[in-house]
Amino acid sequence: MLKINAISKTFFPNTVNEVGALNNVSLTIKEGCFTAIIGTNGSGKSTLLNAIAGTFIPDQGSILLNETEISAWPEYKRASLIGRVFQNPFAGSAAEMTIAENIIMAMRRGQSRPLRLAVNAAVKEEIAEKVRMLKMGLEDRLDNPIGTLSGGQRQALTLLMATWLKPKLLLLDEHTAALDPKSAAKVAELTKHIIEKENLTALMVTHSMQQAVDLPDRIVMMHRGQIVEDYRDEMKKRVRVPDLIETFNRVQKRELFDESVAAMLQQQYI
């Protein structure tokens, strides 16, 4: 279970570039819950993911993963518990290494890794069996450098690698945004399949309203560093893309309601 207690983060404090990226954000995600985070650009979605991953330490608040306080842990230490897939399909794997070698690295995440990685027949068979699940024919190309694959194939493998050891938490940061529509749909389908099969706790940042409706169990909407809407249980089952757009509109309408509007409505709302 992930428990975020009132975390805040201000970048460039006391300068003209000061940005209040997270403002007292609290969120609890039960074990096995797949949650999407949506929001406008600059709303704090990726910042929240980065705070959880340990890219930076929040100014205040705490983060607990499976009841262990990880707020002060450095990023590399959290990596033993957290799997991540980034927007850039080339970010989660080593291009010069083969598919098998990349996967072996992922298989030994959190363990000491010798300089020479043994890719023996038994390990290869184990890898091939899991890669076959992707239904991309990559099980026959395990010795090819991963850099020779398409973005979609590489992102699918990155997803497989990030979940190989069943992380306590999976963070997906717009992981289909840089893919062509067909590959994006395939990776989205794989994401749902793997998360369900492994019963993973996952947080996914996405700009795709349709993905937010179709894939997760819960949708959290952020705006200006705060959570402004939380669709879960029956609400989540009922919600459709137009409802999410309507909620975005409502949040933006509230923002456009300034003092001049209040003064105008004093005359006009009678």
Binding site: Q252, K253, F257, L265
Partner: peptide, 17 residues
């Protein structure tokens, strides 16, 4: 009495555009 800004936003929604 008149509800001042910003509390008025808890009572009225304005279309904004």
């Amino acid at each position: 009495g008149i509800i001042p800004f910003p509390e008025i936003r808890e009572w009225l929604s304005f279309c904004g555009e």
